[in-house]
Design a protein around this nucleic acid. Sequence first.
DNA 1: ATGAAAGCGCTAACAG
DNA 2: CTGTTAGCGCTTTCAT
Lengths: 342, 342
Amino acid sequence: MTSDTNRPLTLRDVSEASGVSEMTVSRVLRNRGDVSAATREKVLAAAKQLGYVPNKIAGALASQRVNLVAVIIPSLSNMVFPEVMSAISAVLEDTELQPVVGVTDYMPEKEERVLFEMLSWRPSGVIIAGVEHSDASRAMLKASGIPVIEIMDTDGKPVDCAVGISHRRAGRQMAQAILKQGYENIGFMGTKMPLDHRARKRFEGFTEALAKEGVEIMDQEFYSGGSALAKGREMTQTMLERSPDLDFLYYSNDMIGAGGLLWLLEQGIDVPGQIGLAGFNGVELLQGLPRKLATMDSCRREIGEKAAQILIERLGQEDAGNSGQIVELSPKISFGDTLKRY
Amino acid sequence: MTSDTNRPLTLRDVSEASGVSEMTVSRVLRNRGDVSAATREKVLAAAKQLGYVPNKIAGALASQRVNLVAVIIPSLSNMVFPEVMSAISAVLEDTELQPVVGVTDYMPEKEERVLFEMLSWRPSGVIIAGVEHSDASRAMLKASGIPVIEIMDTDGKPVDCAVGISHRRAGRQMAQAILKQGYENIGFMGTKMPLDHRARKRFEGFTEALAKEGVEIMDQEFYSGGSALAKGREMTQTMLERSPDLDFLYYSNDMIGAGGLLWLLEQGIDVPGQIGLAGFNGVELLQGLPRKLATMDSCRREIGEKAAQILIERLGQEDAGNSGQIVELSPKISFGDTLKRY
DNA sequence: ATGAAAGCGCTAACAG
DNA sequence: CTGTTAGCGCTTTCAT
């Protein structure tokens, strides 16, 4: 160790060790302005030798700039969100910006707390999942004066920009595809979570499109907690015992759909002949299943990338002209092996 | 909107709006010291009315305290790490401390960058996955002067504290269990990643324990990238075609194990009669599989909780006496339905 | 119970 | 190319 006190090193320490003014040290460490090669070397050597780590707190306060982007998502255990995260990270990697994650557990009050906490660090921008927020949250976002990109969902009025898909439309599209293939006795399975607005919207769009053709959902089942794969099995069995006439099962996510698929195959049921299946999300896992589950891509990667790009533009020019824009991506249905195709 | 400039609000704004000194406003907002109920009300009302969000940057600089805990993990797409994260979050929830995640993608240089970046925000502590770090990283950790908890792995010399399991021992235990059940022709499948030290140690422990009984791995296969479930299938097929005499397959993680299991069942192969299987991690997904894969719990929840607890203790008392401690948890084998039990 | 002064560690803006 | 002077917005400390 180089110092014997426990005090973290400051610019001044580097300044003294190198015999260069604090200001110049600061310039070297930030590659700013013109500094002679000689002094640069001296400073760098001293900094490295001491093991100096700059204090961003002080730097941020002085410069009034914080290269942090608050990314606020409902959950980390959904795989969907880590994927969005990594798309965001990948794009921000080329910039000075650093994503910082906050998790809300789908709870509006927690979202409020997390948002408050993150905004108090004065980030350069916010990327937040969903367009449903408490009044307080919306007020904070507006008052923050920084770019706000709402992601995943475009069914609603964003505070600023939005990038996502219309889950209502996604639900409708799937319903239309299912009807078109001649299925008529349709069951639905999904999460109980009333706060998962996107799942709710898909369900609403789904039933709405069915209704338009005079079809009603024959049976439905909701779950919460536990292993999604196992829940998918259980619910499928329960529902089929209760409603043996079902010829199609629409799952609100791929994991429960995969569970249902595995169970049906074990029972020797003909999929998609006897019963068709579809999920939602297009998760990687489906690649390893005995049959490819029909699903719909949720465009997570594109959403993450686009959101990060918009943010970068907004930060680049004061008025990038993209304030208020809504980017609606178009998810595509993948028929897989569980949705008949005539 | 209340203000027409775009400048974020400051304590001074609240002070002026409420007619109370900045200092007292500060005290109210932090519930510090004695403030009369009357002024408290006034201040709170003004703050809320304006939509004031405190500036933690300034607060942190002035108080020299930052209630952030840097949590550095290799990946978010492994499910294992989000689980550790949420265990940490759950424990920290009861404190002022806030976890902040950094992802290294299993790359030492990225770990170095992320660590540097995070340390420059002067967090109160660091929780970091693994005990293998570059010299520079170790130096930074030591020089930081804050508690450092290395998690997941106890095979090595931690910088400060460590909480985890011995992956070498885990590999040995599984080997012993397999041999004990009479399996002799053993194949191994795992990731190619040379930087996943824990997977490597499990493999080493595994082969070492086999060797002690005069057994050698009959075949092995490594993969990288792609859907683990699909890779598990492919590798299993490849390996079995190449080495049809195999009677046991040890997978370095549950996902590829699950893929292998699904493939074997489809082929009508008797599991575990003809071929036994085991994975590692004890992931929730296994609950929904047709057979329960034998596996070994990696104690992620306990690790996260314990790490957070140790950190809290360390931060509580200057010398909590737990500096330098190593907590080795004991993972247990779950035989499931894919490892014979006589 | 409240206020005034000083300064946290750094950088913007200017001088030289 | 390098140094000096002022703060950034808050909290600490010490008065009152």
